[in-house]
Design a protein around this nucleic acid. Structure first.
Lengths: 110, 110
DNA sequence: TCCTCAAATTGACGTTTATCGATATGACGC
DNA sequence: GCGTCATATCGATAAACGTCAATTTGAGGA
């Protein structure tokens, strides 16, 4: 049904403080790598690595223009991950937990 | 301003497939550890470790009752993490990126 | 008071991650 | 074509992570 492992990549990406900050920065619009780098105390190779992770999970898109690479949020993925987060944290009428032998607690079940 | 590292813990917790599944299970209501364990192919100590991580980041609450421990989602944290996700992914009028030397792109800035 | 059972903790392991410096790639201007 | 600049990739390293089996803790029942 829901692809946990796909979205886990996104959560893993957001699980790093600096990557969460990068996402926050990009939420205001496209930025080129050097602008992002300026804001952080990290090497260029480390930033590049973080951007790769953000891109690979789908949260961020890269657009190359000459020497520069511009990054921006992928709004589709953003909205998907929000939906996913809502889905796994909200009660479901037909949840698997509602049938048979789950959600009764140990007492009622043994 | 916003405490990235606090919420990064929550994302890190959700970044593991199995923990995301556990959250999904708990969204339908309280469950005791043994019920969760039944659903997974993992050792009891591994489950206990995952539950600890989920509790420590605030996503899940544990309630001990006799021999058993019942787990449930902490709705406050759930709502906070949703808000945080929205915040870092949506455009902000007074975003730090809107001032001075950011968001102009490299061309306009050097 | 024992024994049993649920859960947490410990210690070990192999894997993944974050980071860096160094190097490679590829675009631009001369 | 040659330096320079922006990024990406590589290789190394130390820390963090997921997992298990074994042990400990603590509650309940005989």
């Amino acid at each position: 049904m829901s692809d946990y492992s796909e979205y886990s990549k996104v959560f893993k990406a957001l699980g790093d403080t600096k990557r969460a900050m990068i996402v926050d920065m990009l939420s205001c619009g496209e930025l080129c790598a050097c602008m992002i780098l300026e804001r952080f105390d990290m090497s260029q190779s480390t930033l590049s690595h973080h951007m790769k992770i953000l891109c690979e999970c789908g949260l961020v898109k890269g657009r190359e223009q000459g020497k520069w690479t511009y990054y921006s949020l992928d709004e589709d993925t953003v909205s998907e991950i929000k939906q996913f987060l809502c889905r796994i944290t909200s009660d479901k009428e037909n949840c698997m937990c509602k049938d048979s032998d789950c959600c009764k607690g140990c007492d009622g079940n043994e």
